[in-house]
Structures are given as C-alpha cells and as structure tokens.
Design a protein around this nucleic acid. Structure first.
Length: 741
DNA sequence: AGCACGCCGACT
DNA sequence: GTCGGCGTGCTC
C-alpha cells in the first residue's frame, strides 16, 4: 500500500534563521520528495536550496502565502535519520540555526546543487557471447590489428573498466573495435561494498605487550566505548590504529580516522595505503570541491573502507561505520573557529554513541577534558609508556635567563650546547612562537612604535620580504633595513630599532654564528606552497640542514631522528596569559615538541628558556612530565570550578565602534544575570582586541551543567536576536571555547 | 544572510 | 530635480 501523498514540506534554509519554511508540493513532487533531501525553492526574490525536515498534509499558514517547491534534487536523503538527528543535536548544543548546520555538514558542491549519486563508471563489454565462431570472426576481422585483437580478447573474458584500459590501449584502438561493432561502452553504477574484496593486507608489526593489551581491549568492545590511548611519542599508537582498523575492515565495516590539520602528511597516508591497499580516501582542505564530493559519495555508497580526514570529515556519511579514531585528540585544529563552532572530537563522540561503536582518542598529551573522563572511568584508559626499540624520552631541562646577556634571544650556555651538538654531527631544533624578523619596530628617540591602524597592533618586521607586516590583517608596507636608513614616521629620527625576536632573526644570527652549517627556517612563510613543507622535512632527514628554526609547525607530526638538542625560547609568554588554558597548551606544546627529538641510542635534550624557573608549574612539567603535570592542572581546575568540571560559553561581539560592541555585551550580561545559577564575566577585550578596523569584545558565561548552560544560552540567543543591535554588530556564541582570542 | 523599500545629502 | 548612502524589515 502506498503512503498518502504529502502536500507540504517544512524546509530548513541555510540562513541564520531559527524557523522552518513551508512549501507546497505538486503530485509528482509528493512522490519524489524525501526527508533529508534538498529542494530548490523560491525565497523572496531568489532561489535557494533548502533541506526538507518534515512532510505533512496541512500547514498552519494561510495557503496564499505558501509557494511551490521548484525542484526536488534528491531521491535518496543526504541526511538519513541518524544524520538528521546529529544535525538537530548540533543545532541544539551549539545554539545554531539548523539550516546553517546542514550547510556546514555538506561538501560545498552539494550546497551548490551537485548530484549526490556517484558518477557511473564506463565499462567496455563484448557484444556477443564469446563462442569459437565469434573468435574466428574476430580473428579474421582483426587480422591486421594485433592491438585490437588483444583488447577484444581481454574484454571477452569479462567486462573491463574504461579508465583502467586507457593506460594500456590508445583511444584509436578502443574506437576501432567499437566501430567494428565488437565491443561497446556501457555505463554502470559502481558496485557497493566492493572495497571489501579490494583490501590488500600489508604485513603488520609485532606489537609489544602494551600495544597488544590496547589492541585486544579495543577489539573486544562490542558497543559504544570511548578509549583514550595515552601514549608517548614513538610508542606506536599508529600501529595500534592500524591493527584495530584491520579488524573492522575485515568485518566489512568502514572506519573514520580524524587527524589534525597539519598531521595529514603523505607519509601517513602512504603507510595506510601500504597496509590496506586502495580502500583509503583522504579528506582535507587541499582537495577541490569535486574531489571532496567524490569522497563523500563513495563513503555514503559504501565504496571505500577508510576516510582519513581533518575536522570536517567528522560529518562524512557512511553506509556502515564501524569505528572512529581521533589522533592527537588534544589538537586545537579540531575546534572550528568560525560559523558553527563545533569540536570534531565531541561530534565524533556523539556519532560513536549513535552508531553504538567505539571511539578511540589518541595523544601523548591528552586534553584535560579527555583525561578527566578517563580518570572518571567514563572512558577506558590505555597507556603506552614504552617507546619502540626502547628509545628513551628526551630529558627536559630549564635554563634560567635572569641576568644573562642574550643574543637573538638565546642564552650563552645554549650557544655552547648548540656548537657541541653540531660538532657531534647531530641536529638542533629551536622553537620560537613568532615568525618574521622582529615583532616590533620602535623609535629610540620618541618611543613611537610602527602600528597597523586597522588592528592597533605593532607591525612585524620581515627582512626576507623587505616589509612591515600586520600579522592580524595581512596588510604590509615596504621597509628595507639595509638599502636606506629607516626613519621614524613620527619624529623622523633615524634611530629606529627592532624589538623582540622572530624566526628570521634567529636564522640570520645562527647562520653568522655557525657559518659551516646550514640553518633552515620552518614557518608558514618559508613553507608556503603545496609540497614545500614535506620537501623541507625530507631535506632535514637527509641531513642537508643541521640547524632548524621553526614555529608551531615543527611541534607537530614529524619526527627528526638526528635532533638531539631542542630549545624553546619564549616559555614565559604562556605563563602569564589570562587564558586559563595557557598552561595546558604550553605543556602540550612542550610535550609534542619533545617528541620530535631523539632516538634509541641518542636520547635528546629539551631546554626551556625562562625567567621563571622556580615557577611550580614549570618545575612540575620539567621534573614529572606531562602525565603528572596534567593531573596537577586538573586538580587546580576542579578547585577553581573551571572546565572540565564546569561548562562555558563565550559571547563574541565585533563592531567598528567600540561603544556599540560593548553596549551589546552589556545587554547580554543583563540577560545572563537573570539566570540564578549562571555565572558570567566580562565584557573583556578579546585576545585580539582589534582586527581589520573592528573592535572585538567578549563575555563568558559558566554553569555547572551543560543542560543549564544550554537552556540559558538558548534564551539569551533568542533575546539577542530580537535586539535592535543584533543586525548591526557581528556576534557569535562559542560553546566550550578553545581560546578567548 | 540577501534583497527590498525608504527617507535624507551632493551632483548633472 | 536624481543617484545613492545604509537603517529596518521580511523571506513560506
């Protein structure tokens, strides 16, 4: 029996609106339409793609107001029941309009109307059954064309993919056979689930006892379970991933592996491809829209086994998802910093629960919220403490800077260490959190600092590009420290000088200091361009460079075996931040950075330069390591009622006029104050107080439970939305903010 | 978010 | 007298 026709569709539009819109369906559309599919509808003066969330036989609106759906784009829902539920949860949890959530979850090609069904594949097939008669006839016909005969025989055995034959046979050969009417080109959809036959298992490593326990625990889980693998760098987390993934793939289940933005190196991908063959797809910001669409389609239609992807891959539709892994789960790039401000790790947890499958979180420096859940026994805690091959962890040491004459920010004793290390034929890694030559240019006569007017921030001096750059808005102006004598733009004095130290300056200094060694800079300036970073890493591993100076980039992903001395310059900047997460971030940075150095027979040394060497936090980190330090920090957070034992939301406001931005926040605070169990702080200037001519302020609201915070913020959002300033200022709610910049 | 309508200042 | 500034309000 057929369903009664549904005449109206409730449609979510990709706009910051919190209501659905009703549209009428004609008889034909009533047959086609699916909940969770796209419809093209007239919306005001334009035509917009929306997502159908509900079908009904009547509408509360007067029929004259209701317009007709123009087109139903999907016969199969883009959002099945599970994904619809996920979208609704996201909208609720992040206080966001569901239409925008839908748009965020889809690859942009689908938001623009591309087809959700994978393109058909072209096959060559032989015209008749292959009898000996045919063979004779073909042999006669093709007597003068060896190639065509060859192809004909191949195709006669079984149908072959056109794309596979293109490399073996030229177009003329294929065309020739077609014209002789012996073969034909047919379109067939790619079969579903066939990747399971394409798995080519590579050889595994033999796991050590810790790895074996981890693998067995994860494989035994038959329902929703979250695992934290707390494993020092080099302890073989990846091998654990590979083995538990294999288990799922052999059951015919798909696997999602989320990695940080920078962590998706060709080496990692190759390792997975070597192990599993051609069932691996990648998803990252470097793909074109068309490439992303293809991966999305293949995941949905069960045409791939594994997706390795960055943040937004967490929304991938899967036909039969068996497990999610989040590698380097503490990494901040899992938090989206605009639009729908979701955290991919938290979305992954929700999805794992939906599908009743395992979520594996891995890190050498787990986020405090994850550690908290592990210590609470909400998550299963697996530890990998041994480094492969018995390599020792690098030793961490503090360098007291008080009273020392620094050269380009480096202590004299450190220069001696650097020289010793170089002489042994080993490499040195230096971390600075600033790119460019110096973070400021100052006049010693009048004190004027060259400042970007749009951002109220000192310009950074760049020597390689001969300009002053604003690191907030990107604007720059020519500045050449060598070819002419620079002048102060206020008093015209020629006694201008740089202040502070960036990567360029250290590179220049070390090159002068150690002229017989090659010093390379690794920051976003020197690694611009697609493959440059990997080329650089290859050169470093080939020992073409001995001195490595870099920013955050060097703390992630890549291991340098011959680095035995690592140096972190500006540790103190993390100790006095107003961001309560700063010590956690410092510890993660130091831990990740330490993981880059040393190998079995050459343990590394990591030095932290500081004016605050007696700081108890630094002492704890250096003497007891991340694991202990994190537990100390967690106790402090618990005592101070901060996350992860409380829940925060941040209201961010931007406007050209300072007072307008603040007025909106004052109003927001008055709304917060109506909730008895909500605490709020602010307005504060954002970490970046002014950016591209707009002032930025924020307030923070905090509650003991997410439920309370969520209910309060939903009401606050509704009131803010109605406020007259709402359309004027830029504002956003950020649930569980990663930072306050 | 768009895109309209609508009401006040410098231009042919 | 008109072009265009961006304030306000609506979109099924």
């Amino acid at each position: 029996m057929s369903e009664p026709l549904q005449h109206y569709a409730k449609v979510a539009m990709p706009l910051p609106l919190y209501t659905y819109f009703d549209y009428a369906l004609n008889a034909e559309q009533s047959q086609q339409v699916v909940i969770g599919g796209r419809v093209l509808v007239p919306f005001g003066k334009r035509k917009v793609l929306g997502i159908v969330v509900e079908l009904s036989n009547d509408s509360t609106l007067e029929s004259t107001k209701i317009k007709n759906v123009l087109e139903c784009l999907d016969q199969v829902a883009l959002f099945d029941a599970t994904l619809l539920k996920l979208a609704q949860w996201l909208a609720q949890f992040y206080i966001a309009p569901v239409g925008e959530v839908f748009a965020t979850m889809l690859p942009s090609a689908l938001n623009k109307g591309a087809s959700a069904t994978p393109a058909a594949i072209y096959y060559l097939t032989s015209k008749q059954a292959f009898s000996s008669e045919d063979k004779q006839r073909a042999a006669q016909l093709l007597a003068r064309s060896k190639q065509q005969l060859n192809l004909y025989e191949r195709v006669s055995e079984h149908d072959l993919r056109l794309s596979q034959l293109k490399s073996e046979f030229s177009n003329t050969v294929i065309k020739g056979l077609q014209e002789k009417n012996l073969i034909e080109l047919v379109e067939k959809p790619e079969p579903t689930g066939q990747w399971q036959q394409q798995i080519v298992l590579g050889s595994k490593q033999r796991p050590n006892p810790e790895q074996s326990i981890a693998i067995a625990s994860i494989n035994q889980a038959s329902q929703f379970t979250v695992f934290l693998i707390e494993g020092v760098t080099g302890s073989g987390k990846t091998e654990v991933y590979l083995q538990v993934i294999e288990e799922k793939l052999l059951l015919g289940k798909q696997v999602l592996l989320l990695v940080p933005e920078i962590g998706l190196t060709p080496q990692t991908v190759k390792r997975f491809q070597r192990r599993f063959g051609d069932v691996v797809a990648v998803w990252h910001s470097g793909l074109t829209d068309a490439e992303r669409l293809k991966v999305w389609q293949k995941a949905k239609h069960n045409q791939l086994g594994i997706v390795i992807g960055t943040r937004s891959a967490v929304f991938m539709p899967f036909a039969d998802l068996g497990m999610i892994i989040v590698d380097e789960e503490h990494d901040e790039s899992f938090k989206q910093q605009d639009g729908l401000r979701y955290h991919a790790r938290d979305v992954a947890a929700y999805r794992a629960k939906q599908y009743d499958i395992s979520l594996v979180l891995g890190s050498a420096s787990p986020a405090l919220e994850t550690l908290h859940n592990a210590l609470n026994k909400k998550y299963r805690h697996l530890q990998l403490l041994q480094r492969a091959g018995g390599a020792a962890m690098p030793v961490m040491k503090l360098m007291d800077l008080t009273g020392l004459p620094l050269q380009s920010g480096i202590a004299p004793a450190m220069l001696v260490r650097i020289e010793q290390t170089l002489k042994k034929g080993e490499q040195v890694l230096i971390f600075v959190n600033r790119r460019g030559y110096a973070p400021a240019l100052i006049c010693t006569e009048c004190g004027h600092v060259e400042t970007c007017n749009d951002c109220d921030t000192p310009f950074t001096v760049h020597v390689t590009t001969n300009n002053l750059q604003c690191h907030r808005c990107g604007q720059n102006k020519a500045y050449n420290a060598h070819s002419f004598k620079p002048k102060c733009s206020v008093c015209s004095s020629q006694s201008v000088t740089t202040q502070g130290v960036g990567t360029e300056q250290i590179q220049t200094f070390l090159t002068e200091q150690f002229p017989s060694y090659s010093c390379v800079r690794i920051d976003s300036d020197s690694t611009r361009g697609k493959r440059k970073l990997n080329t650089l890493f290859d050169e470093i591993n080939q020992q073409k460079h001995q001195l490595l100076v870099g920013t955050q980039i060097v703390a992630k992903g890549h291991h340098f075996e011959n680095v035995t001395l690592a140096l972190i310059l500006n540790v103190d900047s993390y100790l006095f931040s107003s961001d309560f997460k700063a010590p956690e971030k410092l510890a993660q940075l130091v831990t990740q950075f330490s993981g880059r150095a040393g190998r079995a027979n050459k343990p590394g040394e990591v030095w932290l330069q500081s004016y605050q060497v007696s700081n108890p936090l630094l002492q704890d980190l250096v003497n007891n390591g991340y694991s202990h330090f994190a537990r100390t920090l967690l106790q402090e957070r618990i005592a101070a009622h901060l996350p992860p034992v409380s829940w925060q939301a941040c209201l961010r406001v931007e406007h050209i006029d300072q007072k307008t931005a603040l007025a909106f926040l004052v109003f927001a605070n008055s709304l917060f104050s109506q909730f008895k169990h909500l605490r709020y702080f602010g307005p504060f200037p954002a970490g970046v107080e002014k950016k591209q001519t707009r002032y930025r302020y924020l307030s923070v609201a905090q509650a003991d439970t997410n439920q309370y915070l969520n209910k309060a913020l939903e009401q606050v959002r509704n009131s803010l939305h109605k406020h007259s300033l709402s359309a004027k200022v830029r504002w956003a709610i950020d649930i569980m903010p990663a930072d306050f910049s």
